[in-house]
Design a protein around this nucleic acid. Structure first.
Lengths: 229, 229
DNA sequence: CTCTAAGCTTGATAATTATCAAACGACGGA
DNA sequence: TCCGTCGTTTGATAATTATCAAGCTTAGAG
């Protein structure tokens, strides 16, 4: 593992304040692996062996039922995933696959559990991380149950733009059908909803989305701090 | 606080293995309070002062947006709630109100955080509890995004029946409109979906739901271990 | 015992979303 | 440069869900 990646991981809230010896212990047991586009990293129903961390590239978490599939989250660097399954040592509820070529750091679940027991700072960081993820899911569920598709899209655009520094322009890093699934709609309806948002100052072409009238978009989206936080 | 409630709380996975001194510390700072039906216990957007535990009665967790409201969970004894907000010391994302007269134990957030730092067993239990709640939410989100209303209802009936010991009969402990909101549908559609399930061996009258043909219901519901767990 | 209010059901209609089919367009390989 | 593939868009239609408006049922008040 190179210096750069080591530093990236070390800087994560999850590891930032862990004692050097314990961090070293975690890292010495870990693997950093490269995967091409479209590789399934984990499959729902299997038992966890490693805590995963997206170091580079992006990863889609998705769930299936009766032949249907839905995207639950899209992870960008640097983010851990399947923490809850590792902690409880229970089967994955979600699958994961790469949306781009990606680098994934994998820390053996046993090492995570061991350091958790020894290092109170790490334990606290794990709880904090999990609690944050829990809250993200509450927001996602409220988004899904309380809003129409067009509203979810409008708010997603506003959030994505905010996370990129309010440049009034968002570039998708994955296919539109993935965004559609993340937003709980079909690709066809994403297309129609994007067309609808033209009326509220949103232009899109290919993978670029441009906000030409942020206040009109906001009036339509009605963002809510307790959902879009 | 009476012996009975003390024992109930002590038996929770969250407290079961905590050292006696630390449990006492938590409890000595706690309040056990009775509330009538329909009382709002917490409001989304406010900051948490107490970890709450439903000791008796039932409690609805719900979220709102733009005048709409949706039930996120219905809690039965004995369950903690708003753990994630307490841990992160951030505003509630959900509101809570009693669905019946209820007894609620409230432990000051500061005490929870303090004992967490001192008692590794408690820390581990908190993480485990949070991870379980996280997984419950993943299931709820998959349920909502991957299934139709009728399927959600069918699977809900199967789960409720299973949690009452497979008697092929479920009694609602709250109004149907609450169940409708929990299932992400209007009361009108819950009514229609219940009527539809008549074709699959489900009879309902008032607050009683009877499963007359479990295998027919299962064929329709297609329960999934990774959603209905 | 009757009345009333609240919750539930039913019907009609509208909005939203999904599905199926076909056409379009951008990109990479021959 | 042309072709084929794949993702996207557009159109038509069906399914699902929400909304609005009555009626119905039932439990509690008087």
């Amino acid at each position: 593992m190179r210096q750069t990646e080591w530093k990236l991981v070390r800087a994560l809230p999850l590891f930032r304040n862990v004692k050097a010896a314990n961090f070293k212990k975690l890292m010495s047991a870990a693997f950093l692996q490269r995967f091409p586009y479209g590789v399934t990293l984990i499959r729902e129903g299997e038992l966890p062996d490693f805590l995963h961390i997206v170091v580079d590239g992006s990863v889609e978490m998705y769930g299936t039922d009766d032949g249907h599939e839905t995207t639950i989250d899209i992870l960008q660097p640097v983010t851990t995933f399947i923490l809850a399954a590792v902690i409880r040592d229970e089967v994955y509820l979600k699958s994961a696959r790469t949306l781009t070529p990606a680098q994934i750091l994998m820390i053996p679940a046993t090492a995570v559990r061991e350091v958790f027991g020894r290092d109170a700072t790490f334990a606290r960081a794990i709880v904090s991380e999990l609690a944050m993820r829990y809250r993200d899911l509450v927001r996602a569920l409220k988004d899904e149950k309380l809003r129409t598709g067009a509203q979810r899209l409008a708010n997603w655009i506003l959030r994505a733009d905010a996370s990129h520094g309010h440049r009034h322009s968002v570039e998708l890093e994955f296919d539109k059908r993935v965004l559609a699934s993340r937003l709980g709609m079909t690709p066809e309806n994403l297309s129609r909803n994007l067309a609808l948002l033209t009326n509220y100052g949103v232009k899109s072409s290919g993978r670029d989305i441009i906000i030409e009238d942020a206040s009109a978009l906001k009036r339509f989206a009605k963002p809510n701090a307790l959902i879009d936080g």
